[in-house]
Amino acid sequence: MFYTKLAIGGALAVSIAVVVYKMRWLTKAGAGLGGAFGAHVVLAGGAAWALPLAVFVASGSLFARLDGRAHGGADKPEEKTPPRTAAQVLANGGVAWVALVVLPYTDGMVAYMAFAGALATATADTWGTEIGTRWRGQAWSLATGRWVEAGASGAISGAGTGAGAVGASVIAALAASVGPLSWIMAGCIAASGVIGSLVDSGLGAFAQAQYADPGDTKLRDRPMSASDTPVRGVRLLTNSGVNALATLAGSALAVATTVWLL
């Protein structure tokens, strides 16, 4: 039985890794890391763990591949999101992977809630960012209290927040349908995901390093050169770091809920 699961998990993971790389959803390193994560999930967790992960990966990748035409239509599509790197894969899925690693050494329900809470947060953030940006509306900056371009770090919009809530709810519903969770716990997972995504926005607004050219008010997440210093935030805290901390917050909240309910 073990070797059968190993063979199935390995074949499935390799197949998925090849597909996502060929479709330029992930870089080669990102596809390899994602494939290893997927194989481990299938082998150690089974369908209850694998299905929510598959939905997160597939939906996030598909949204990122959209041509950027906004609600209401646009003549010129925006630039597509570049393939996600291994660092981005780890930032979004690392906490969930840790939950799977510690599964044999802890309460199974607690580990699963940690896993689902992290995935719900990552899904809420991904759906909120991808859909909110393509809606072509404005977003409200938490740092300045002003309306900014949708998709800016540390900004929230109605469309993005709503999409994030739907994404977190989808993961929660799957966790209740194929996993060991009750629907009350699923509701807690959805709430944890939404709150985790708001933590992401807050960190993006106040702690993430932001850069700007002299005389330019538009902020960006990456420096143009190694000598650039951030005009706001902590130099070492990148967008990937913010994603990792946010998924940790969503996961921890889900675990706290489990302890309280049980």
Results as ranks from 00 to 15, higher is better:
residue 8 I to M: 12
residue 9 G to A: 01
residue 9 G to M: 10
residue 16 I to Y: 12
residue 17 A to F: 13
residue 21 Y to A: 11
residue 24 R to A: 10
residue 29 A to C: 08
residue 34 G to A: 12
residue 35 G to I: 07
residue 36 A to W: 13
residue 47 A to Q: 13
residue 50 A to P: 05
residue 53 L to C: 05
residue 55 V to S: 05
residue 60 G to S: 07
residue 61 S to T: 09
residue 62 L to V: 15
residue 63 F to R: 07
residue 72 G to Q: 13
residue 75 D to L: 15
residue 76 K to W: 12
residue 76 K to N: 14
residue 78 E to M: 14
residue 79 E to L: 06
residue 80 K to G: 11
residue 87 A to Q: 14
residue 88 Q to C: 06
residue 89 V to S: 04
residue 91 A to D: 09
residue 92 N to G: 08
residue 92 N to W: 13
residue 92 N to F: 01
residue 96 A to C: 11
residue 99 A to I: 14
residue 100 L to I: 14
residue 101 V to Y: 13
residue 104 P to S: 10
residue 108 G to P: 10
residue 109 M to I: 14
residue 110 V to Y: 13
residue 112 Y to A: 00
residue 113 M to P: 00
residue 113 M to N: 05
residue 119 L to D: 13
residue 122 A to M: 04
residue 122 A to L: 10
residue 122 A to W: 07
residue 126 T to H: 04
residue 127 W to C: 03
residue 127 W to I: 08
residue 128 G to Y: 03
residue 135 W to P: 02
residue 138 Q to S: 14
residue 140 W to D: 07
residue 140 W to V: 04
residue 147 W to A: 00
residue 148 V to Q: 03
residue 149 E to W: 11
residue 154 G to V: 09
residue 157 S to K: 05
residue 159 A to F: 06
residue 159 A to G: 01
residue 164 G to W: 02
residue 172 A to E: 06
residue 174 L to V: 09
residue 174 L to P: 04
residue 176 A to K: 10
residue 176 A to T: 14
residue 179 G to N: 07
residue 184 I to D: 05
residue 185 M to W: 08
residue 185 M to E: 14
residue 187 G to T: 08
residue 187 G to S: 09
residue 188 C to E: 08
residue 194 V to D: 00
residue 197 S to A: 10
residue 204 G to W: 01
residue 214 P to F: 12
residue 216 D to A: 02
residue 226 A to S: 12
residue 227 S to M: 12
residue 228 D to W: 00
residue 230 P to R: 04
residue 231 V to R: 01
residue 231 V to E: 10
residue 235 R to N: 01
residue 237 L to Q: 00
residue 237 L to Y: 04
residue 237 L to G: 09
residue 239 N to V: 07
residue 242 V to G: 01
residue 246 A to S: 15
residue 248 L to Q: 03
residue 249 A to S: 06
residue 250 G to Y: 08
residue 255 V to K: 01
residue 257 T to L: 11
residue 257 T to M: 13
residue 257 T to Y: 08
residue 259 V to Q: 12
